[in-house]
Design a protein around this nucleic acid. Structure first.
Lengths: 225, 225
DNA sequence: GAATAAATTGCCCTAATGGCTAATAGATTA
DNA sequence: TAATCTATTAGCCATTAGGGCAATTTATTC
């Protein structure tokens, strides 16, 4: 899978260790379809280059001195170029992974990645693919909201014995999750408080929970709102 | 990146359209390091083959008749083999993507993928990589819990003006999210109800919300619990 | 037409919640 | 040492929540 376009993929490397930086550059420049246009050893310098070159792909070390990689990514996204970011790191803390991905990274690589593989990742990412290193993939997928409750969505097939919510109840649930009181929900739906309460009660029963907090948390965790 | 191991990657294809099935098999079998060991046209048949062959990788169509791909994946995971699953589909509904990934898929491919690329994905996935098609990557990343609130976690740097929770408050927050009442929280922490209430009140203020439901939802959405 | 389900409203009751002020003891910090 | 922060306790009070029971209207299905 080699990029046969006339235009090579432009890459900027942001990494504080010179040795790693050189290694990355060599590994990538060995490919005709990839062109490392700049290197930076800290985030501030890196952001300058990004603004100047608007690269296709940014290789960003997360453990930078001063402004760290996550902050740099946020700033980078604010600049609104469509550069894709590959987060590079040497550790696999769950919090950092999620932070990186939700801050705009398209890939998460450990630094011990095979250099040839890295070129593949650069190509993938430049096309918009999301690529996650094996050791972090599972923890990331685990952080996704669980959708076990297809059966509770209105109009959906009822897999297990769970009673599905009606359309109206689902509507109430959404307001409930947004933190509205029964009174507010009633106003929103232009019904009496009694009605709102009745709906909430049946929601609690159908969702097998004791109070609205549990209902809200369950709804959010399972991504049904 | 060709697998040079002696043992090729074993693959099972589960796909109802015969034409697509043949296409997949040809595309993959063209690679020496990949071996399509079985094909099935529905989930039940597929699960039998999976049990028999315990393949490295399963190519699973999501739009199967009868038991759909998601259900099949759940059953497959219950069998506890470490087969990796590639979800294949022709559409990109957000709900389906998240469902698939949280049900155990390691990759999500559109059916119009380049056959050569698919072989790469099979290799990646067999090593544990998570690979997401460009069109679905962004929506998946958006579904990740936002960690904007480093400032609210106890002991973390306070980026913006937000007051961080104390350790104790954080402890209370976790109980709150699990749906416990003030009384229950008090019992859990072996303090009076007044104390629990006091903590909840300061949590509400620090999180800038009006009630415990909003606090719980915010906590879950931002992944700080 | 009859049966069923959903949406609506009402009332009763007890318990829980959240806002408010205020006090005390311990730990940490300036 | 003084100041600050935290955890703890307390009481008061208006509002809210949730359970239970019952009734009406509307829509849909058999």
């Amino acid at each position: 899978m080699v990029n046969t376009e006339v235009k090579p993929i432009s890459v900027i490397i942001i990494e504080d260790f010179k040795l790693t930086r050189v290694g990355l550059r060599c590994a990538l420049n060995a490919n005709d379809d990839i062109d490392v246009v700049a290197e930076a050893e800290d985030a501030v310098e890196g952001l300058k280059y990004i603004e100047r070159y608007k690269p296709d792909v940014i290789l960003m070390d997360l453990g930078l001195p001063g402004m760290n990689g996550i902050e740099a990514m946020v700033k980078c996204k604010e600049m609104n170029f469509d550069s894709k970011i590959i987060a590079l790191t040497s550790h696999d803390r769950s919090e950092e992974v999620i932070s990186a991905l939700s801050s705009g990274a398209s890939a998460y690589c450990m630094k011990d990645i095979d250099p040839n593989k890295l070129a593949d990742v650069v190509r993938d990412v430049s096309k918009g693919v999301c690529w996650l290193d094996p050791v972090v993939a599972q923890m990331t997928l685990n952080a996704l909201p669980k959708i076990e409750n297809i059966g509770i969505l209105p109009g959906k097939s009822n897999l297990d014995g769970r009673v599905p919510l009606t359309e109206r109840e689902f509507e109430v649930l959404k307001h409930l999750v947004s933190g509205k009181s029964n009174t507010e929900i009633a106003k929103e739906l232009i019904v009496s408080v009694h009605t709102a309460k009745a709906h909430v009660c049946s929601i609690l029963q159908k969702m097998c929970v004791n109070d609205r907090v549990q209902a809200a948390v369950k709804a959010v965790k399972e991504g049904i709102v």
